[in-house]
């Protein structure tokens, strides 16, 4: 059975994520990140930031609520039991800091099949409250064919 591509181009409702200081600390602690920019407000301010700086992959946290509806969309049709692996790419703009409100919109970029594997690719675009694009993410999920 060939993979359905009817969902390509589909867009999901944007989500808004309020970046909290303690959430940045909690995330940095979980990853083992010790850079004071992520823990010490005074150090972050001394470095020229308004508040604690989010670690690079904190983008996964503020993108996750926007990605869920696409990942679980029956029209996209990802079979999680057959998911093998995937990849992610990010381009970052201005750094995200505590207090930011990040709006993320997700769309289906491509769905394809090659060599018995199905590739489901999503794009996320995240902007801060000033309208700056802080992160463009490409999320590839690879699933074994049925």
């Amino acid at each position: 059975m060939s993979v359905s591509t009817t969902a390509v181009g589909k867009r999901y409702p944007p989500t808004v994520y309020a970046v909290g200081r303690e959430k940045i600390r909690e995330y940095a602690m979980a990853v083992g990140e010790t850079n004071p920019l992520h823990h010490d407000v005074e150090a972050a301010r001394a470095a020229g930031y308004a508040d604690l700086v989010a670690p690079p992959m904190f983008c996964v946290v503020y993108c996750a609520p926007a990605l869920g509806p696409g990942l679980f969309d029956p029209e996209v049709g990802i079979d999680f039991a057959r998911m093998v692996h995937g990849g992610q790419q990010f381009r970052w703009g201005p750094l995200v800091v505590a207090g930011d409100e990040i709006t993320t919109a997700v769309s289906v970029t491509s769905i394809s099949e090659d060599g018995g594997r199905r590739y489901f690719v999503f794009e996320s675009v995240s902007t801060n409250q000033a309208g700056d694009t802080v992160c463009v993410g490409t999320w590839t999920n690879i699933v074994r064919g049925a």
Partner: peptide
Amino acid sequence: GQLTAAILGDAVAAWLGRDRLAGYGVRFK
């Protein structure tokens, strides 16, 4: 995978500079 990607991403940020890191991509193996 996100944890491993974050551990590598943080090491890269420390290596290249948090404010200089503009792009990052990973494949899970």
